[in-house]
């Protein structure tokens, strides 16, 4: 049955509409969970609020488990699901840049738009910086092209590299998430309370 677009069950136009609705839902949940506050987001780096880590790990393992069960029931053909190709060097470089921006600005791209939408000036500045970054990357692409395309690994999964089944990888990832939750709460208890 799935993927719905690839199998022509929903049209690309309907897909855009669904993406729009899901996007609104995502923004709403981010805002109502307090993710439009840069202090809450920065908390994950200072150890006083680990909600961000917990939310994204939960989202990850929920989607992962759901997809694997859908595949098991034959509801989705995982071979037809698009996996972003991996470019190792640029992934590491991008991760470092994104992380640095996250610590400095207290937002990630999605939450900055959330913050800007409710009128936070720091979020608007962050969004401005985001567009400047996009412009710089686009204009500077010829200089960055080598780095951008370095070490192409194709559409790989960690489970393929480790040569284990997707299910075993999922279990490892769930164990990792649980460990991270436990560590995160231990950090939260240790660090001094910050009022924000």
């Amino acid at each position: 049955m799935g993927p719905l677009i690839t199998n022509g069950i929903i049209s690309p136009e309907t897909d855009l509409l669904l993406a729009f609705i899901i996007g609104i839902g995502f923004g709403f949940v981010l805002e109502s969970s307090g993710f439009s506050s840069s202090r809450k987001l920065a908390g994950v780096f200072y150890g006083y609020d680990m909600v961000v880590l917990k939310v994204f790990f939960t989202a990850g393992i929920t989607a992962m488990t759901g997809l694997l069960f859908f595949s098991l029931f034959g509801w989705i053909d995982m071979d037809m699901v698009y996996i972003n190709p991996t470019f190792l060097t640029s992934a590491i470089a991008g991760g470092v840049i994104m992380g640095a921006g996250f610590i400095m600005g207290g937002f990630c791209p999605g939450t900055s738009l959330c913050g800007a939408a409710i009128g936070k000036i720091d979020a608007m500045v962050f969004v401005g910086g985001l567009f400047i970054g996009v412009l710089m990357f686009t204009e500077g692409y010829p200089l960055l092209e080598g780095l951008y395309n370095a070490k192409p690994m194709g559409m790989v999964k960690i489970s393929e590299i480790l040569n284990v089944s997707d299910g075993v990888m999922a279990l490892l990832f769930i164990a990792m998430a649980s460990g991270a939750f436990w560590l995160a709460e231990w950090f939260e208890k240790r660090s001094k309370k910050v009022e924000y």
Binding site: T65, F69, L72, D79, D166, I174
Partner: peptide, 23 residues
């Protein structure tokens, strides 16, 4: 409860053979 549920689901998915849904 969440942890227990996710571990249970993870164990199930790790134990069943990998689904190779035919196209």
């Amino acid at each position: 409860i969440f942890t227990v549920v996710f571990f249970a689901l993870g164990l199930i998915i790790a134990a069943v053979p990998q689904s190779r849904t035919m196209q």
